[in-house]
C-alpha cells in the first residue's frame, strides 16, 4: 500500500548514494492557495520527501517559527480535513513524493483515528508523525493507520537510550525521525559529529533509514548532517521564509522554494567525492 512510496524513495536515494532532503511546510500557511503552490513546487526544488504540518493550537514541541506558522494557518482557517484536501490536490501532479503529516494528537483523536486514517490514505498521505503520542499510548492510532496502510513514523531523541529505542522502534515502518537536539524545533543548532553515532544506533535498532531534524537551518549544516544521515529535515528555516515574505509583502512561494532549493543542493551534493559510502 502507500508505505511503499516511502520505501521506494529511500531505495532510490540509496541507489544514488545520497541523503534525502525532507522539506517541512505547514498546511495552510500563510493561506491555502499559497500553501498548495509551495507544495506543488517542492519536488522540483529538490524535496525528496515532504512533511506536511497540520496546525494545532498548542504546539508544545515547536520553537517560535513553527508556532507562528501554526497560528497563521489556523487564522487562515486551515483544518485537518483541509490538510488532507491539500495533499489530494498535490497528488494530482505528483504520485511519487512521499508525504508525511506531522502534528499533535488531539485533532486526530477529535476526528476519530479510523476515519482519519482512511481519509488520509485516500488523500495520498504515506505516514504520520504525532509529536505528543509516545509509543506506550500509540497502539490505537498505530492500529488504525496500519489498517489503512500508513506508517506511524516514530521519533527518537538524544535522551533515548538503547532500552528506550527498542520500545520506540517496535512495529514502526518507513523511517525513524531522529530529533538531533534536546529541545524544540528551530532553536539550537544540530552538530553532525554528535549526531552521527546516534544515527548509527537508531539504524541498528530499527533496521530503517534515519531522517534527522530539529536545528538544521543552513545548506552547510544540512550538508554536514547529510553525510551521516539518510535524510535531512528542514522546517523552521522554510516557514521563516513564509513569515519574512509575508512581512515584506514579497512573493511567498518563490521565497520558500528558493530556500528549499539551496537546502536541497546542500543535501544532494554533500557526499560528492565519496559515492561508495552506503547508507542503511
Amino acid at each position: 500500500m502507500t508505505t511503499a512510496r516511502i520505501d521506494a524513495r529511500f531505495a532510490k536515494l540509496k541507489q544514488e548514494g545520497r541523503a534525502g532532503f525532507v522539506a517541512y511546510v505547514m498546511a495552510g500557511d500563510p493561506d491555502r492557495d499559497t500553501a498548495l503552490e509551495i507544495l506543488k513546487g517542492l519536488p522540483a526544488a529538490g524535496a525528496d520527501l515532504i512533511e506536511l504540518g497540520f496546525p494545532f493550537s498548542d504546539p508544545m514541541a515547536e520553537g517560535p517559527p513553527i508556532q507562528r506558522a501554526a497560528q497563521r494557518a489556523l487564522a487562515a482557517g486551515m483544518t485537518l480535513r483541509g490538510t488532507l484536501d491539500l495533499a489530494r490536490d498535490f497528488r494530482e501532479t505528483d504520485q511519487d513524493t512521499p508525504i508525511i503529516m506531522m502534528g499533535y494528537l488531539n485533532p486526530l483523536l477529535s476526528r476519530g483515528y479510523g476515519t482519519f486514517a482512511r481519509d488520509a490514505a485516500a488523500a495520498g498521505i504515506d505516514g504520520v508523525i504525532v509529536v505528543d503520542c509516545p509509543p506506550e499510548e500509540a497502539r490505537p492510532l498505530a492500529a488504525a493507520l496500519d489498517a489503512a496502510g500508513l506508517s506511524l513514523i516514530r521519533l527518537a531523541t538524544p535522551t533515548s537510550d538503547d532500552a528506550r529505542l527498542s520500545v520506540i522502534v517496535q512495529g514502526t515502518s518507513g523511517f525513524v525521525y531522529y530529533v538531533s537536539v534536546a529541545g524544540v524545533t528551530g532553536v539550537k543548532e544540530a552538530d553532525a559529529d554528535e549526531v552521527a553515532p546516534h544515527v548509527e544506533r537508531v539504524r541498528k535498532a530499527s533496521g530503517l533509514p534515519v531522517a534527522v531534524g530539529f536545528g538544521i537551518k543552513t545548506p552547510e549544516r544540512a550538508a554536514a548532517v547529510a553525510r551521516v544521515a539518510d535524510a535531512v529535515v528542514v522546517g523552521s528555516a522554510l516557514v521563516d521564509e513564509v513569515a519574512k515574505a509575508v512581512e515584506r509583502n514579497e512573493l511567498v512561494t518563490s521565497a520558500v522554494l528558493s530556500k528549499a532549493e539551496s537546502l536541497a543542493k546542500g543535501v544532494r551534493f554533500a557526499r560528492t567525492g565519496q559515492p561508495t559510502k552506503t547508507t542503511v
Binding site: F56, S57, L74, N106, P107, L109, S110
Partner: peptide, 20 residues
C-alpha cells in the same frame, strides 16, 4: 475528552480538536 499536555482529560476545544 481530548489530549493536551500529556494527559487525556476533559478539555475546552472546538469541533476540530483545537484547544479553545
Amino acid at each position: 475528552p481530548g489530549v493536551l499536555h500529556g494527559n487525556k482529560t476533559y478539555l475546552l476545544q472546538d469541533h476540530e480538536g483545537q484547544i479553545t
